[in-house]
Simulated assay, not measured.
Amino acid sequence: MNTQNTTRNVLVTGGSGGIGRAVAKRLAADGHAVAVHYAGNRAKADALVTEITDAGGRALSVGADIADEHAVAALFDEVEASLGGIDVVVNTAGVMVLAPVVEYDLEVFDRLMRTNVRGTFVVSQQAARRVRAGGAIVNFSTTVTRTQFPTYGPYVASKAAVEALTLILARELRGKDITVNAVAPGPTATPLFLEGKTEEQIAELSKAAPLERLGEPEDIAETVAFLAGPARWVNGQILFTNGGLA
């Protein structure tokens, strides 16, 4: 595959949410065809697809429980049938529920792990089988694997698992001409991040990075666009996209 100025077919999981939405819009603007995945909010995914197509892009919405291997296989079938193949898979779908380890609800823990670990694994497994040569798999971690903020224990544990999976899958795909990397955002102004935080906490986090602001979803999307397109010599890496926080 010609890796310069090449449009690709992309599946973005969690594509109707904060970072996923920005990623889908950026990749569509770059000329790629984008499948916008949703888990429960089809209306948001459909609205994004309409926004992309109205701007001259190519997109479709697709639904599935990413932790259900049968649903994910069917999802990949649908995207392949609609777009003619898959070149890039971006795993932005995730759950974040914060609380100290000592009082963390185990049912919430299981739900978080099911989405963040099993979901990423199931999608990555299908991606490893389906992504065409010259393509890319992009998973999502978090900068908190380095900053180790209190109350993030289960979430960080899930993302540490994602990092390990990403690094090993990159080595397992030797000879396939498929890159596998993860993006680890810092504090980013999305509903997932802002929920449950006080104005004082948000202000403090805004000043934590040397650039003294929260990241925007578009900042993260820029890194994904690099990995999804021209970054053919970046492989088996965790890219910390956090304004210098850690």
Rank of each mutant, 00 (worst) to 15 (best):
G85Y: 07
A161M: 05
A221N: 04
A225R: 09
T120H: 12
G135T: 02
A67T: 04
D68F: 04
A67W: 05
E69Q: 13
D105G: 03
A128S: 15
Q126A: 15
G84R: 09
V102C: 00
I86M: 06
Y152R: 07
E103W: 03
Q126H: 14
A184E: 09
D110G: 05
A28I: 07
L167V: 06
A157Q: 10
A246D: 11
G15N: 08
E222S: 15
P187E: 01
Q4M: 14
T13L: 10
R132F: 07
T188Y: 04
A55M: 01
T115W: 08
S16H: 13
V138G: 09
F240D: 05
L169T: 13
T13Q: 06
L169E: 07
Q237P: 00
S16Y: 06
V108R: 14
N139R: 12
K25P: 00
E204L: 11
A133Q: 13
V234E: 03
F149D: 11
F76R: 09
E204Q: 13
S158W: 04
A246Q: 08
D177A: 15
I202A: 09
I202T: 11
V49N: 06
P217S: 04
T142Q: 09
G15W: 07
E163S: 12
R26W: 02
A189F: 02
D46M: 04
A246M: 07
P230K: 10
R129G: 01
T143G: 14
F240A: 06
P210D: 06
T92C: 14
P154E: 06
D110E: 15
V90C: 11
F109V: 09
L11S: 10
R146P: 06
E204D: 12
V95Y: 13
V117P: 06
T151G: 10
E222N: 13
P191H: 13
T223W: 10
R58T: 14
E200K: 12
R26G: 03
E218R: 06
I66F: 03
H70Q: 13
D177L: 11
P230S: 11
N242G: 12
L211T: 10
I238S: 07
L194K: 09
K176W: 06
